[in-house]
Design a protein around this nucleic acid. Structure first.
Length: 294
DNA sequence: TCTGGGGTCCTAGGACCC
DNA sequence: TCTGGGGTCCTAGGACCC
């Protein structure tokens, strides 16, 4: 629920600001616990992860034991509960983990997969978001079972490579590996103004702040960047981006500010009210790589 | 109900090179 | 002046994840 709506419904509630530093710290501590129990480990956002426990257990019963151990350890150390799903692949495990919340533990064995998936809405599948759900609905496909009985050729026609993927997923097939996320690909900051604004002096000062924050992160990680992307969202939610790739890598605040201002310049003429601006740097290189790139 | 902020990946078109 | 085919990089937009 957007905070604006909550405020209208319940003005007397206590509203606390988020504390991402704390969340990140706790997240890191929990990820360390998880990592110990995995063969291969893949963090998925701030509060989820995939663990390949194949090398550690002989069967599903032993996997359940590991899951229980993990839950106990997280509760002991952080006083937090979590939900775990166990399955033959990432797709099934993820859907299983969402199945019972909070504090759930769901096991889906190979032979149970299709029956488990069939009645669920397609939206539960990984990579099926709002848009895809709508498009599938126009084709009469609502549940994963519907999808499993559909002609894969027509799915491939309508959705390209993803269509084939959807069909395979509907049968519980997912060959993707649990893999360590290698390097960060981009660093960004977005800000939505409290009120839509066309005061460009103000927007410019915020842009400079975003630049400063990004550079702080970039330098802390020891990264360099080449590409800078500016994003604007107008009051009607129309969103545009403009990017520029520099000829050489950099980590300097001046470079970022200057380029960000140039990119924003393009949107200033139009005199429209702005709801959000964002800034992103990508095409990252770390300190070690940097020497070879020069 | 008008919708926050940090990310990743994919696609399509165009520039440029050989 | 018009024209091939293969490849890479850049840009803009969109869908998806948490």
């Amino acid at each position: 629920m957007p905070i604006s709506r909550a405020w209208k419904l319940c003005p007397g509630a206590v509203y606390l600001p988020p504390n991402y530093e704390l969340y990140t710290k706790v997240s890191n501590e929990i990820m360390c616990i998880l990592r110990k129990h995995a063969g291969k480990f893949e963090q998925w956002g701030i509060d989820e992860a995939f663990l390949d426990v194949t090398p550690k257990v002989r069967d599903y019963a032993e996997a359940e034991g590991v899951a229980q151990q993990i839950k106990d350890e997280i509760y002991e150390r952080q006083k937090l509960t979590c939900s775990i799903g166990i399955g033959p692949n990432k797709l099934v495990a993820k859907i299983a983990s969402d199945h019972r919340k909070p504090n759930g533990l769901t096991i889906v064995r190979e032979q149970e997969v299709e029956a488990f998936l069939a009645p669920l809405p397609v939206r539960k599948l990984l990579w099926v978001g709002r848009k895809t759900e709508q498009k599938l609905a126009t084709m009469g496909i609502k549940t994963i079972g519907d999808l499993a009985h559909y002609d894969p050729a027509i799915l491939a026609e309508g959705f390209g490579v993803a269509g084939t993927q959807f069909y395979l997923m509907s049968h519980g097939i997912d060959k993707s590996e649990v893999e360590e996320r290698s390097q960060t690909k981009s660093v960004s900051r977005d800000i939505t103004f409290e009120e839509d604004t066309s005061n460009f002096e103000f927007v410019l000062s915020i842009l400079d702040e975003l630049s400063t924050e990004i550079i702080k992160d970039i330098q802390a990680y020891g990264y360099y960047f080449r590409t800078i992307t500016f994003k604007v969202r107008y009051e009607n939610f129309e969103t545009h981006t403009r990017s520029k790739t520099l000829p050489v890598i950099t980590n300097s605040l001046q470079d970022l500010r200057k380029t960000a201002r140039e990119l924003m310049q393009y949107y200033l003429r139009q005199g429209r009210k702005i709801r959000l601006i964002g800034l992103r740097v990508s095409n990252l290189a770390s300190v070690k790589e940097q020497k070879t790139l020069f």
